[in-house]
């Protein structure tokens, strides 16, 4: 058997140490909190699985989960095709490349709370460009009072903020396709759709996997933007898992239930991310 040099594993030790400090130890702490009750002063009382029972039987949790899953599903259904469409239409040569890349990347450079503030003002019916214009045009739009308007605003905001990421990833995937593929397609007289279906889309598989995973995880954990724009309202209509969790942990200081909620939340993200990854890499893993 050919000897294998395993020394390269030593190079990942620093990352392992960082992950241990930034993820594993906090996660262990959350697990410890999830089976105890505390009233502050670093005093804890054993609660067993009581908090898990409370969370799993609460309508509040399942409603927030449904809202978070719906939000992620909607934005993925919009951002992935739109991002690919934008990437397909971006210039590949000349000055236009730099200009387009800078313009496309701009929303990604804006901090999340600033994006929230921009859209919070943008959608206001009294002074906001979007809100005031829609109302002047006779559309009954008010994201503060109407749950559908609130959802539409949040979805529009997320699409505006994050489609750029999908577009840039898809663009990077597209420019890496060798010209020989396109030449062969031209010789065969392939239509534009055939080129996309049989050359571009398969070659985009890996970057789209990354795009879907990033966008799913990010949207499922979204907090800052909806908190700034709607604060979870009107009512609870835009209270996602993360917003409810922060209200419970910081607002109510219910650390035990919040920890149990966090663990379940984490397990759902882990599972769905694994399913996405497994499905999208199924063919190449065989």
């Amino acid at each position: 058997m050919k000897p294998t040099n395993q020394k390269a594993w030593l190079l990942v030790l620093p990352v392992l140490g960082l992950v241990a400090l930034s993820a594993v130890i906090p996660l262990m702490t959350v697990v410890n909190y999830s089976v105890q009750d505390t009233f502050g002063n670093n005093q804890f009382f054993w609660a067993g699985t009581a908090w898990y029972e409370q969370v799993l039987h609460s309508e509040r949790f399942w409603s927030a989960l449904a809202r978070s899953l719906s939000f992620s599903a909607i934005i993925l259904a919009i951002e992935i095709p739109l991002g690919v469409f934008i990437a397909l239409n971006m210039p590949r040569k000349g000055v236009g490349v730099v200009v387009t890349l800078v313009l496309i990347a701009l929303p990604l450079l804006i901090p999340w709370n600033v994006v929230g503030t921009i859209w919070q003002v943008f959608g206001r019916v009294d002074i906001g460009l979007l809100g005031a214009t829609l109302n002047a045009a006779g559309v009954d739009y008010n994201y503060v009072q109407d749950p559908i308007d609130a959802w539409a605003t949040l979805i529009l905001m997320d699409v505006w903020h994050w489609t750029s990421l999908v577009a840039l990833l898809a663009y990077a995937g597209l420019v890496s396709i060798p010209d020989a593929y396109y030449q062969a397609a031209r010789i065969d007289g392939a239509s534009q759709w055939s080129v996309f279906r049989y050359i571009q889309l398969p070659r985009l598989g890996r970057v789209l996997t990354i795009a879907v995973l990033l966008r799913f995880m990010d949207s499922f954990m979204i907090y800052t933007e909806p908190f700034v724009v709607t604060g979870g309202g009107p009512g609870n209509s835009t209270t996602f898992l993360s917003i409810d969790l922060v209200q419970m942990a910081v607002g109510q200081f219910d650390l035990g239930p919040a920890a149990a909620w966090s663990i379940i939340y984490f397990l759902i993200i882990l599972t769905l991310s694994w399913i996405f990854y497994a499905v999208m890499t199924r063919d190449e893993s065989k």
Binding site: M28, T29, V31, N32, Q36, T38, N42, F44
Partner: peptide, 12 residues
């Protein structure tokens, strides 16, 4: 601060 308990320590 990590609020360890015997059952969770045994689990990990």
């Amino acid at each position: 601060w990590m609020a360890w308990t015997t059952p969770t320590a045994l689990f990990f």
